[in-house]
Amino acid sequence: MMKKTVLLGAALFLVISPLETVMANDNGASAANTAQAISKQGMFTNAVVERTKDGTIKLHWQTIADLGPVKVYWSANPDGGWKELARTYASFGGLSTADPNPGSRVYFKIKGGNGAMIKTAERLLPLQGTTNFRDLGGYRTTDGKTVKWGKLFRADELAGLSASDISYLQKSGLKTIVDYRTDDEVKQKPDPTIAGMKYVRNPVFGQSGSGTDLMNYMAAGEFEKMGKPGDVLIAANRDMVDHPEAYVKLFDMMLDPARADLVQHCTAGKDRTGLGSALMLLALGVPKETVVQDFMLSNKYRETYNKAAVGAMVKQFNLTDENAIEIIKALMDVRPEYINAAFDEMASKYGSIQGFLEKGIGLSTDKQAKLKKMYLE
């Protein structure tokens, strides 16, 4: 039953846009004494990139102390090839610019007069055919390193990608598309074939199931069979921890340089993909609090869609009961209790999140060290 229920969530979930904040990066301080010196002089603590409706790119940054003159660089490659874009002052807190790389992914490096530096990029990719395709880069780990930009992505369904979207992704360096959806979902909205990318079917809930039972419950007005608002997805997150085979396969791909630089996706990019993203970040040493913040971003990106979808279902099923409407809203949302149910299940079955990574996923200390070497800077 629970396997079917989460699939309803997936089947209902399309998605929406905006973007979010980036965690700080301190690439300019590699040695301990340099780090201490920069800390005394000042450093960047955060940098965010936003795109306006007319395509203008706005960079915002925060610093400790005034870093004086600032140089801003851009590149299509987060690992190098930087070109100077602008010169300004740290005290201005940011700048607006035309897109220096239209139709392609662009990364920014901001360097202060004292050598302090931070990399950043748009978290949400500016694609026409998806609404929740985002980069997991920029998050700070507990040991002060940062998840590399442009290596690990999470997304919703890809069936709506336009020709320009596909061109954008081909230029991004992506190697692998990991699809968590069921056979029924894939059959209804298959991913496009993208030259240069390996497509991997990796269903979280096996080969079948479509959430038909839940749709029938709603159509019949039998919302009591779905429990309290949120119960379906709380149970689903526990179930995903109890049956982690798809995530074991995910990490096998992450550890393979030939398949690294990947995007994992489901239908909405919020539940199955949400747990996969959480596991990725946790294995790299990102704090649980930050992981939950990333999980919750889907509400921001989906906000407009969720309102429209809930309204449409209320009309379709002629709902007046507030509890029934709240159940539908809960299916469309992500909530802290959903991902925390997964964490609680890990602790219950494996003693801790780390225990789950080691025993449930099979990530030895050596494998986790390799992941960090591959995806952190």
Rank of each mutant, 00 (worst) to 15 (best):
A116C: 04
D156H: 01
A268V: 00
G355P: 01
L8P: 00
D239L: 06
V72F: 05
G28Y: 01
P126K: 07
M2G: 13
G206N: 10
G115E: 02
Q264K: 04
V248W: 07
A258K: 15
N306V: 07
Y217S: 11
L85M: 09
L158N: 02
G221F: 04
A24I: 08
S208M: 12
G355T: 07
G221C: 04
T212D: 13
A258S: 14
F205A: 15
V15Y: 15
L85N: 03
K225I: 08
D79Q: 14
L124N: 15
T120G: 05
A312C: 06
V286D: 04
P78L: 08
D179S: 02
G138P: 05
K71N: 12
V241I: 12
E245S: 11
L214E: 13
L357P: 04
N340Q: 15
L125H: 06
G103K: 08
L281D: 00
V286P: 02
T56L: 08
L174E: 01
G55T: 06
D239P: 00
D366K: 15
L363I: 02
N46Q: 14
A309C: 11
I194W: 03
K189V: 06
V334L: 01
A10R: 07
A235Y: 05
N46Y: 05
L250A: 09
Y180D: 07
K367T: 01
V6N: 11
V286L: 05
N306Y: 06
R51I: 09
A31H: 08
F133L: 07
V49D: 11
S30D: 13
G276C: 02
H243G: 03
V70L: 13
A308K: 14
N114D: 03
G115M: 02
E303T: 09
T21H: 13
T290F: 11
A31Y: 04
S164G: 09
T304F: 10
T63F: 02
N132K: 00
G94S: 06
K249C: 04
A35Q: 10
A47P: 00
K171A: 14
R272H: 04
P78I: 09
D79E: 14
D156W: 00
A236F: 05
L282W: 08
Y247P: 04
L357V: 06
M197S: 04
L7F: 04
P336G: 11
G360W: 02
W149I: 06
S162W: 03
R272W: 03
Q264P: 04
E345Q: 15
T52M: 13
M280W: 06
Y107T: 06
T130G: 01
G129I: 02
R140D: 10
K40M: 07
K249M: 08
D252Q: 13
N323G: 09
G28A: 11
G113V: 04
Y89C: 06
E157V: 06
K40C: 01
L297I: 12
K300S: 12
Q368F: 02
R87W: 08
P18A: 14
D156Y: 00
E222H: 12
L279V: 02
P78N: 09
V49Y: 05
N202G: 03
V248F: 05
R201K: 14
G227N: 08
G137H: 06
D256G: 03
A47S: 10
N27C: 12
N318M: 14
G112T: 01
N132E: 01
K198P: 03
L284Y: 02
M226C: 10
L136Y: 00
